[in-house]
């Protein structure tokens, strides 16, 4: 037995303290400001939606792994991240079965079926969102008037439209924007506009995103190129025909763009690993978002854009391999 006394493993024998479960926890932590804003704005609805998503996502993952007799790895916290992001991508007060359906598609169909952690080609929360949008468009777009915590508890929700949705339908019906003051920059910034549960507060998302960059959990390349691309392209369009679209600042603060750029486009599993690849990825996301927002029939476009770029990620990673040290071109 003397030979088994000592642990023999490959070098290195020391490791960085950061482990995958901690990485995921950092992401959740970075989402806390956004969660708080949504709870402030939608009150009890928000709490309920987050709670349901967390229970369903973690529960389904554990159940699936149990049934397949695989180690239950729920504690890697990746399902928690998916749960929070999925909830944020739903309307503020979805029925419980909608959350369950979304969780099922996100965790089981788009993650576990592909082999679990790290194996999914598409961002699970976004697949969940897009599936629900297609399957239950009415439920997924039943926006309610943002109100304060108090009124939220009193269930006096008033249904309303999102700024981007409102403008899209105005342009479709009358060719130009009718309502003014619809997307006031400061409202967009703070998040007191109607829309999905979370991520409408640009400032809250920004705080979390910058925290992740500071902690070196994510790099700045994707969010920056994504936002810059949207800003520049919508800016050009706005300069040409200001009556047809919002100004570029409104564009980058409206809808799920901020959340998408900092938290979903940067999802490790589904974005490229090299810096050059990430810059291309961010640009692609931005371009697609602008095309959908300006020329498509759908007001948003962030989810679709990121999913399309997710599909391109393996290609980017394959063909944009950086030169290895001292590589001699042959």
């Amino acid at each position: 037995m003397a030979d088994n006394k000592f642990l023999v493993s490959f070098s290195p024998h020391t490791r960085d303290p950061l482990t995958t479960d901690k990485v995921m926890m950092f992401v959740v932590l970075a989402l806390v400001p956004s969660i708080l804003v949504s709870v402030y704005v939608y009150g009890f609805y928000a709490v309920k939606t987050y709670a349901l998503a967390v229970i369903f996502c973690l529960g389904l993952e554990a159940l699936f792994l149990k049934i397949r007799k695989l180690p239950v790895t729920v504690r890697d916290n990746s399902a928690l991240v998916t749960a929070v992001l999925l909830a944020m991508n739903m309307p503020p007060s979805p029925p419980w079965w909608l959350v369950l359906a979304g969780s099922f598609v996100a965790i089981i169909i788009s993650k576990q079926v592909f082999g679990g952690l790290g194996q999914n080609p598409f961002n699970p929360a976004l697949v969940g969102r897009v599936f629900l949008l297609i399957a239950w468009p009415a439920e997924m777009t039943s926006w309610i008037e943002p109100s304060t915590l108090k009124s939220g508890f009193m269930f006096d929700a008033v249904s309303t439209a999102t700024p981007l949705g409102q403008i899209k339908s105005e342009i479709i019906s009358s060719g130009h924007i009718v309502s003014t003051g619809m997307a006031d920059i400061s409202d967009l910034f703070i998040g007191t506009v109607s829309g999905c549960l979370g991520g409408d507060s640009a400032i809250a998302v920004l705080i979390g995103g910058l925290f992740l960059i500071w902690k070196r959990i994510i790099k700045w390349h994707i969010p920056f190129t994504y936002l810059a691309t949207v800003f520049v392209l919508t800016g050009l369009y706005w300069l040409i025909s200001p009556e047809k679209t919002l100004n570029p600042l409104q564009h980058i603060f409206a809808g799920g763009l901020m959340l998408g750029a900092f938290f979903m486009a940067t999802d490790y599993v589904t974005c490229p690993m090299t810096i050059r690849g990430q810059i291309l990825f961010g640009f692609g996301c931005g371009l697609l978002t602008v095309v959908i927002r300006l020329f498509g029939g759908y007001p948003e476009g962030v989810a679709f854009s990121i999913l399309i770029m997710n599909a391109v990620t393996p290609l980017i990673d394959n063909y944009m391999r950086p030169a290895s040290f001292g590589e001699v071109k042959s």
């Binding site: 303290p17 995958t20 890697d76 790290g118 490790y268």
Partner: peptide, 14 residues
Amino acid sequence: DLPDLKQCNCIRCG
């Protein structure tokens, strides 16, 4: 003194 070496799937963090 030793780090926890429990492996999980690559998360492609780069």
